[in-house]
């Protein structure tokens, strides 16, 4: 077989001529740039990529990506992507949704896409606020958050996308932040080549309605203390002197000081390939300030995908259309 040389694409090749209409300073800009770089690094031709989006600010992403794209409606991006992938397993299908959509009107569709393990990739912009509708509480708003619709502080418990989706059987879960270019490139690449539903949750700063919500996790001066970088096969250790670790006793995580005579063997070793999702679920629920928040890949396992299953020919002989039209009981009139 002779090799054909694929043209090497750059991030620019994935840009369109459209003016980007996000607020200046929005975290979405860095997600866009990093995503374009990630796509360019994948070696996929542009025409093989389709990006489907929902509503809200994140929904604009396809307009700025020179691939096939479809900007849809609240709650409809995921099922639309499921239908596209079911019909066209040869395409790489990315879905760009905000948490306001996919944990709100789209929450049912999220769980069903995940449980079907459709081979689609979800770039989940999480800014914990409804931006494009001008600053209301999102389903991910943490308790006490004041917004225009929660003037006295939100009292409802917040939904976190990864624990929710892991409970539904998510096969690839990752988290990153808008400003973290290297990690974003890495997890987008891994998600793309994962067979099955993948979620890349991006902590994204909405500097208009929820500015600084993730400063604790992105500020270089403190993030060693507040976050934990997940690495497959490595113990879960964090802190500026890597002096603390995570220990699992029963279903909850404990933070332990390594200097308190806690042997390293007691520290949990990250295993993203565990068939049971419980451990990744526990890690995905760890929330600052009680815990450091975990970034990187929580889980990466394989099981059959819907699009594979749909394209397995049904057992038994297939019947030609003419035969189906005649049915089992035809009669002839001469």
């Amino acid at each position: 077989m002779t090799g054909t040389s694929l043209p090497v694409l750059s991030a620019k090749d994935f840009a369109t001529d459209q003016t980007v209409r996000w607020c200046p300073g929005c975290g979405d800009y860095s997600v866009l740039t990093n995503f374009q770089h990630a796509l360019a690094g994948l070696g996929l031709p542009r025409e093989r990529v389709a990006v489907i989006s929902g509503f809200g600010c994140a929904g604009r992403l396809p307009y700025y990506l020179n691939t096939y794209g479809f900007h849809t409606l609240p709650g409809r991006a995921l099922p639309l992507a499921v239908g596209l992938k079911a019909a066209r397993p040869d395409l790489t299908v990315w879905v760009a949704v905000g948490e306001g959509d996919t944990l709100g009107p789209g929450v049912g569709a999220l769980l069903h896409a995940v449980r079907r393990n459709v081979d689609i990739k979800i770039l989940l912009f999480n800014n914990e606020v409804l931006g494009l509708t001008r600053g209301q509480a999102s389903p991910a708003a943490r308790v006490g958050t004041r917004t225009r619709t929660t003037p006295h502080g939100s009292t409802e418990s917040d939904l976190k996308p990864l624990p929710l989706a892991l409970a539904a059987g998510l096969t690839f879960a990752a988290r990153t932040a808008d400003v973290d270019a290297e990690r974003l490139l890495n997890v987008v690449r891994r998600a793309t080549f994962h067979r099955g539903t993948a979620i890349v949750e991006v902590y994204q700063n909405c500097h208009v309605y929820n500015d600084g919500a993730f400063d604790y996790a992105t500020d270089p001066s403190i993030k060693a203390e507040t976050t934990l970088e997940l690495e497959h096969g490595k113990p879960l250790i964090f802190g500026s002197d890597r002096e603390r670790g995570v220990r699992l006793t029963g279903p909850t995580a404990d933070i332990v000081e390594l200097r308190d005579d806690v042997p390293l063997d007691d520290i949990l070793v990250h295993d993203e390939s565990l068939p049971d999702p419980t451990q990744s679920w526990v890690l995905s629920r760890m929330t600052f300030p009680e815990y450091p928040e975990c970034f990187g890949v929580f889980r990466a396992v394989e099981r059959p995908t819907l699009d594979e299953i749909l394209h397995v020919p049904p057992p038994g002989p297939t019947r030609a259309l003419q035969d189906l039209l005649a049915g089992d009981d035809p009669w002839t009139v001469v």
């Binding site: 849809t72 099922p79 639309l80 239908g83 019909a87 069903h112 030609a320 259309l321």
Partner: peptide, 24 residues
């Protein structure tokens, strides 16, 4: 032959899946 039937979780998801297929 040539028809893929799919059970959806609700009507709007079903219609969206069908539209996604048409886009494809």
């Amino acid at each position: 032959p040539g028809v893929c039937p799919l059970q959806a979780e609700d009507e709007s998801a079903a219609a969206s899946m069908a539209l996604g297929a048409s886009f494809g």
